[in-house]
Amino acid sequence: MFHFATRLFLVLILLSMGGVAPAAVWAAVNDSFTVEVADVGKGADLAALLKGKGYTTVVPAKNMWVTDPQNNCAVWIGKNVPLEMLRAVLPEAMRFNPYLKFFYVVGDRGEKPPQAVDNTVHVGGSIEAALVKKLNIIDQQEMLSALGKAASLEDLHRYLHDKNKPKPEEKPAS
């Protein structure tokens, strides 16, 4: 009886260590990266959900460019944000804001943002910025597919770089 109890205890300890160790590692990884969610539509719900999944999540204070899900339809992806994190965050972001249509890796065109931006994925960037950068619309299903297919983070960055290549100028009616 004693031996059985000891064995059971040791088995439980080993099982729990096996579960805890990766979780601790994953939490440490998550702590290095941040999800910023614009305070529009169901942004607060998205932030709560992601926080519940262990991601460091921030809802920045509103400014005049944070208005509604349609105008805040861009995702700014920090260049160091891991692929696995993007695979977890972006589908939820699209579920909460079906208008997300611009996905851009910050620095893709030579920008040098503050270091913290490289480790941040910002959900709900302004369409005004997307248009100034002449980004292209990426269909959500296509984006989800690319996320699934990407063999590496570099692979995903390459895909987004190609998709966002500026198209020839279209002159608006005056």
Binding site: E36, P60, W76, V117, G125, S126
Partner: peptide, 9 residues
């Protein structure tokens, strides 16, 4: 300063 919404300085 960085403006996260507009992804710009």
């Amino acid at each position: 300063e960085w403006n996260a919404t507009l992804n710009r300085y």
